[in-house]
């Protein structure tokens, strides 16, 4: 275990050296630049004139409910989906014309694992490197390094189907790093993983970020976005609803604290009228009422003063989930 950690650090050190190296002879100002990026499928507009820039080394998040256009945007960036309109440049290159070149710069972790189930763990990494045209000699060393990084060294000869969900994800991430990409694209990287597996994955992604790899990720987990993203856009129905750092978004679109109270499903609407004026804003959800306030405790006191007795109450800090609710009028995971 100790030797594993040691060699990981060593490998990462070498990787770091490499990253700073490549930065020197690359004068491109931003890794990704989208202007009025649009994708239409017939009458349906999946992505509707969105614009954003991602500088080198940033962890950039795309948030939104299912069907918001996150994956479509990801695929356009990954040069595997032609855009309908607008401008898009990845490392200054044009994806419609320079697809293979752009893809050589990228590591892609798709929403659904598409590991090669006919091949063993190490063979999956080998053949993926070969797809990029890399030599077997180089790949042998690289595979060792990546198996350490993904903590899969003792699974190298296993079949893919014998791996757990978390291990498969880690292998998919290792696979995406085989060409030493400058941009790593992750589409809902931790969906379906248990909490422990998620934390291991976050730790690995943190390390990559520290090494200067630009991360682009979609998620509908708020905690994930707050943990990993330097900056994010909130998408809904193909549009950008808001853009900023997690902290700024919370400051701008929500209060400092939130009081959650439950009065029972039938009474929520009725009670809602009686608590008007408490806090900055009130949201009535089917199962609970959210009171946005500078002080949650203060709001709760005011509530009791008005003679209202909630079944349960909870005071918490505002999160991105609240921002999302405010912006789209619905919760993220529907």
């Amino acid at each position: 275990m100790i030797s594993g950690v040691k060699s990981t650090n060593n490998a990462m050190g070498r990787l770091l050296h490499l990253m700073s190296d490549s930065q020197l002879h690359n004068g491109v100002p931003s890794m990704i630049s989208a202007r009025n990026l649009t994708k239409e499928y017939g009458d349906f507009t999946a992505v509707d004139h969105i614009s954003f820039e991602v500088p080198r080394g940033e962890a950039f998040g795309l948030l939104g409910p299912n069907g918001a256009g996150k994956s479509t945007t990801m695929r356009m960036i990954a040069a595997t989906l032609a855009r309908t309109d607008g401008e898009l440049a990845i490392l200054g290159k044009e994806p419609n014309a320079q697809g293979p070149e752009i893809r050589a710069h990228l590591g892609v972790v798709p929403q659904q694992d598409n590991l090669d189930s006919e091949l063993k763990v190490h063979e999956n990494l080998m053949i993926y490197g070969r797809y990029f045209g890399l030599s077997r000699k180089f790949l042998k060393g690289k595979i060792d390094e990546l198996l350490d990084f993904a903590q899969l060294q003792d699974k190298r000869d296993s079949k893919v189907n014998e791996l757990s969900g978390g291990m498969k994800r880690r292998l998919t991430i290792a696979r995406a790093l085989i060409n030493e990409p400058e941009i790593l694209m992750l589409d809902e990287p931790t969906t379906g993983l248990d909490p422990q597996a998620r934390h291991i994955l976050w730790d690995r992604l943190f390390r990559l970020k520290e090494l200067g790899v630009t991360l682009i990720l979609t998620t509908h987990y708020m905690d994930e976005a707050e943990q990993l993203c330097d900056r994010l856009i909130v998408m809904d129905k193909g549009r950008i609803m808001a853009e900023g750092t997690p902290a700024n978004l919370i400051r701008e679109y929500s209060s400092r604290e939130v009081l959650e109270v439950r009065f029972g499903s039938n009474k929520n609407a009725e009670v809602a009228e009686q608590i008007q004026g408490i806090g900055e804003r009130i949201d009535v959800l089917p199962d609970r009422i959210l009171v946005y306030a500078e002080s949650g405790e203060g709001a709760l006191e005011e509530l009791t003063r008005r003679g209202l007795e909630p079944l349960t109450s909870l005071v918490r800090r505002s999160s991105l989930e609240d921002v999302f609710l405010r912006l789209t009028g619905r919760s993220l995971v529907e």
């Binding site: 050296h17 490549s22 070149e101 050589a104 045209g133 180089f138 030493e180």
Partner: peptide, 19 residues
């Protein structure tokens, strides 16, 4: 050093054929 050469190659391999 080996690594740096290889980074060149994934991208370089693709750009050699680009045109």
């Amino acid at each position: 050093m080996i690594l740096a050469a290889a980074l060149d190659s994934a991208v370089a391999i693709a750009s050699r054929r680009a045109n």
